[in-house]
C-alpha cells in the first residue's frame, strides 16, 4: 500500500509534515516571547506588576484627554497615560514629537518613581491605523463614518 506512493508524493508529504512542524515551532516561540517581545508595558501591566523604582522601562498607552498640563518652568509637562483600566501619571521635560497630543497614543521611556509617578526621559508618539484627510475633520461623526464606510 505504502509502496504505491510515488516519490513525488512522498516528497510532498514529507515537506508538508516538515513545514507543519516548523510552523508549530515558530508559533510556540512566538507564544513564549509574548511578554519579552512587547515593546512597552501598558498601565494595567504596570499596576499588576510594578517595576522596581529606577529600573528603565517603557510605558505605552493613550494620553488621557484633559490631563496634559505644562508646569511653571514652561518645559516640563505632566499628563496621565491610561489603557481603560489603569492610569499612570507621567512627568517629562523636553521637546515632544509633533504627533504627541491628548487622546493619542504615546510610548514613554523612563522609570517609575517611588511615589508612583513615571519619570519619562524620552517620548515617542504612537499613531493609530486611521488615515483621514484634513477636510474630514470638520465633518460630524456620522459624516465621517459614512465617508470611511464608502471606502470599505
Amino acid at each position: 500500500m505504502t509502496s504505491a506512493l510515488k516519490p513525488k508524493h512522498q516528497r510532498l508529504v514529507l515537506i508538508l509534515v516538515a513545514v507543519a512542524a516548523l510552523i508549530a515551532a515558530a508559533l510556540l516561540a512566538a507564544w513564549a516571547l509574548r511578554n519579552q517581545a512587547s515593546y512597552f508595558y501598558v498601565p494595567s501591566d504596570m499596576a499588576a506588576n510594578p517595576p522596581e523604582a529606577g529600573q528603565a522601562v517603557r510605558l505605552g498607552g493613550m494620553v488621557e484627554a484633559g490631563s496634559l498640563k505644562t508646569l511653571a518652568d514652561g518645559v516640563t509637562i505632566e499628563f496621565v497615560v491610561g489603557d481603560g483600566t489603569a492610569r499612570v501619571p507621567v512627568i517629562f521635560s523636553g521637546i515632544v514629537p509633533d504627533l504627541f497630543v491628548e487622546g493619542s497614543g504615546v510610548v514613554a521611556e523612563g522609570s517609575l518613581r517611588p511615589d508612583g509617578t513615571f519619570k519619562a526621559d524620552n517620548l515617542l508618539a504612537k499613531h493609530d491605523e486611521n488615515y483621514m484627510p484634513r477636510e474630514l475633520e470638520d465633518m460630524s461623526a456620522a459624516q465621517k463614518r459614512e465617508a470611511v464606510a464608502e471606502t470599505q
Binding site: 512587547s38 505605552g60 515617542l124
Partner: peptide, 11 residues
C-alpha cells in the same frame, strides 16, 4: 497584533 509595538496595527 501579538506584541505591543510602536508600529500601528494594519489599516
Amino acid at each position: 497584533l501579538w506584541w505591543n509595538s510602536l508600529h500601528q496595527p494594519p489599516s
